[in-house]
Design a protein around this nucleic acid. Structure first.
Lengths: 235, 235
DNA sequence: ACCTGAACACCGTTCAAGT
DNA sequence: ACCTGAACACCGTTCAAGT
């Protein structure tokens, strides 16, 4: 994804005016400011002060830019917060989940890009590796750890994807208090007679801090893994 | 989303040449054949034999077409398979989850459209209502049912989103055997020394039928809900 | 009311040319 | 090797005009 040239033999022409990182900086700032559609090749080029097609000197196509950007964001996750083997494994999973969520929510526009691709770069794999180590520490045999890690990944990315799924807004997620107010307002348009339970559920959920629901789900999931692990060990 | 005209007072001009459903048919066939980018307003118009801007007589903008399409797909889910209150609630949840998965996997291109929006139409709400009824039957108090239903929705849509996340392919998902072969082939490019656990996990998971992993995760999740429900009832 | 042709302001990507 | 201008084949959407 990175170094294309070995810094030896590069004879003619000007040195490159840009770095791949500068291009990704521009892409990310456009993504944050204007959402997915604002992060165009032409927009990036304009931002870094270059002709649109110059970007193709650094990346073969737009998909490569997106992959590199996703990789960079995943690389920002701090592994230390859940690498501490002294703490209970459930706490470590929660720390990882919260850290991932914090990083992804900071760039709502990037979430759909992550889900849209395969997330198979080195940083993605490194995170997966840590999660599998963690589940091995928890006592899960390798096959179960594999399944459990995938389940956890689905929860983390699925939760955040549904959370940021609001095409109206661009830019950073508004503070939680504003989002509660917006949800409450949306309730008014819900036909209560036809969908009484959904209306009641929406009214209840509107007040939840999103992080609360995220962690609640994660804990139910960990409960499921634990009971099943226990059942397996007594089999 | 539908009827814009009451069939009274419509005096001048030609009767409308199309129906909203014909437009959605075209959108869906393009989506299935060529993925999200093929389902363009211009493509739809060409498919139904009309100028691009004629579509705007039926829908205010592309987002409205997408919303209507999502609603239609969600409306195709058969409520009977999980409405039977005689069966155990876990079986009913599994039936719903499998049915939803079958419908969504039939149109891989539509998955990102569903996650990208709010899914707040009548059919989406009707499904949510059924799920909440089901969880109430299971004995969950309303607040817990609300949280649990959201958790289940995250699992269903998150699983399918990650599953179809392969921008290379368009059209229907290949049969499971082909996908296993593809996953096995992708393993070759994984750096085993750097990511031993991920490599082993990928090797294991490659052989799993996806439906198997989907149901495995769902059951862990239901286990978590059950233990927690029990704990709550003994509180 | 519904459809059309033409246009506007965008895309991603390619190609030939300059240095 | 890197960048440019120009072009190609697309988008979604709007507008004035026809019936």
């Amino acid at each position: 994804m990175t170094a294309r040239q070995d810094p030896a033999r590069r004879r003619p022409g000007p040195r490159r005016a840009l770095t791949e990182d500068e291009i990704l900086d521009a892409a990310l700032s456009l993504l944050d400011a204007g959402g997915v559609q604002a992060a165009s090749i032409r927009g990036i080029a304009a931002q870094v002060g270059v002709a649109p097609n110059a970007v193709y000197t650094y990346f073969p196509d737009k998909a490569a830019v997106v992959r590199a950007l996703v990789e960079r964001l995943l690389g920002e996750v701090d592994h230390d917060v859940f690498a501490d083997r002294g703490r209970p494994w459930r706490e470590r999973v929660e720390a990882l989940a919260l850290d991932l969520r914090a990083h992804l929510s900071a760039h709502p526009g990037a979430v759909s890009l992550m889900i849209g691709g395969r997330m198979g770069g080195p940083h993605a794999l490194a995170l997966n590796e840590r999660l599998l180590e963690l589940l091995a520490d928890a006592g899960l045999p390798p096959t179960d750890a594999a399944r459990a890690s995938y389940l956890l990944i689905v929860h983390v990315f699925g939760s955040i994807a549904l959370e940021v799924a609001d095409p109206h807004q661009v830019g950073p997620l508004p503070p939680e208090t504003e989002r509660i107010a917006a949800r409450r307002q949306a309730l008014a348009s819900m036909p209560v007679e036809r969908f009484p339970r959904s209306a009641a559920a929406a009214a209840t959920m509107a007040d939840f801090i999103s992080t609360e629901q995220y962690l609640w789900g994660l804990r139910r999931l960990l409960d499921g893994l634990a009971t099943w692990g226990d059942a397996a060990s007594t089999r």
